[in-house]
């Protein structure tokens, strides 16, 4: 296990419903190395969301061990989980989950406010501006989410996810609410970030979307059904050239 960002060992997760316990994840063992771009696929009920929550330190497995960046996270407290999410994981959600009536810049700054070692207000501001610039939205820093398109909102969310320099970017159906062109743009950003060395784990149920990743893990009934590298990987830039209308917005850095 050379440089594993994530190592799961016989992870199980059960929920207690009214009548009987439901086993959502039944023994998943897998390793994700630094610099990978993994798509987790599966139909609803396959356990991929539960697995995602465990990877994101939002939930605890009922059995098994989980290492994130070399740390065993199976027995951490609620606060330690919070800190881990803050420093090591960046979340991108299907529904963007930006704070309403809050400017793009302030949304990007938000994770820095919860850091245990805080930066000065100016440093935070500058860093947030750099991140917005990277996703091509520095011109709209003062716009609230309601004045941004879906694609722009998701790019703000990506900037927010990256602000604390996480080791892992977790995306839960990041293109689920976007049209084809915008989806490809967002996936293009993921590909570029991955090329820069950021590990990306993305949950999706669309094969087209998964094809942008380097490795696809398919879940079914709480187990890993297949775990294969992508042979014919889709390149976002090429794809965009084939799509009509304007090109991918300029990205610096």
């Amino acid at each position: 296990m050379t440089d594993a960002i994530i190592r799961l060992d016989a992870i199980e997760k059960s929920y207690h419903t009214a009548d009987q316990p439901v086993l959502a994840v039944r023994g998943v063992t897998l390793t994700i190395e630094r610099g990978e771009f993994v798509a987790i696929m599966g139909s609803s009920g396959s356990g991929k969301s539960t697995l995602m929550n465990i990877l994101g330190c939002l939930d605890r497995p009922t059995a098994g061990c989980c290492w994130l960046d070399g740390v065993d996270v199976s027995h951490l407290t609620r606060d330690e989980f919070s800190d881990l999410r803050n420093r090591k994981i960046g979340f991108v959600f299907q529904s963007f989950n930006l704070l309403a009536r809050t400017s793009a810049l302030e949304n990007v700054e938000l994770p820095m406010l919860y850091r245990r070692t805080t930066l000065s207000a100016r440093e935070q501001h500058e860093k947030a501006m750099r991140m917005l610039d990277m996703v091509g939205l520095s011109a709209r820093a003062d716009h609230t989410p309601s004045r941004l398109s879906g694609g722009q909102q998701q790019r703000v969310a990506i900037a927010r996810a990256l602000i604390n320099d996480p080791v892992l970017l977790l995306a839960d159906e990041p293109t689920g609410n976007l049209d084809t062109r915008t989806s490809v743009e967002i996936l293009g950003i993921f590909q570029r970030l991955n090329e820069q060395g950021i590990t990306v784990v993305m949950v999706t149920h669309e094969t087209d979307v998964a094809a942008f990743a380097k490795r696809i893990i398919v879940m079914r009934d709480g187990r890993v059904r297949s775990d294969l590298p992508v042979e014919q990987r889709t390149n976002a830039e090429e794809e965009l050239r084939n799509l009509p209308v304007e090109p991918l917005p300029e990205m610096s850095a």
């Binding site: 994101g56 939002l58 609620r78 606060d79 919070s82 800190d83 881990l84 999410r85 803050n86 420093r87 979340f91 989950n97 930006l98 704070l99 309403a100 938000l110 994770p111 919860y114 850091r115 927010r160 604390n164």
Partner: peptide
């Protein structure tokens, strides 16, 4: 509730 969820997800502690 959703705002609280977002804040928690990006690393706010319960005390925050």
């Amino acid at each position: 509730t959703r705002e609280i969820g977002i804040r928690l997800a990006i690393g706010a502690r319960g005390n925050d």
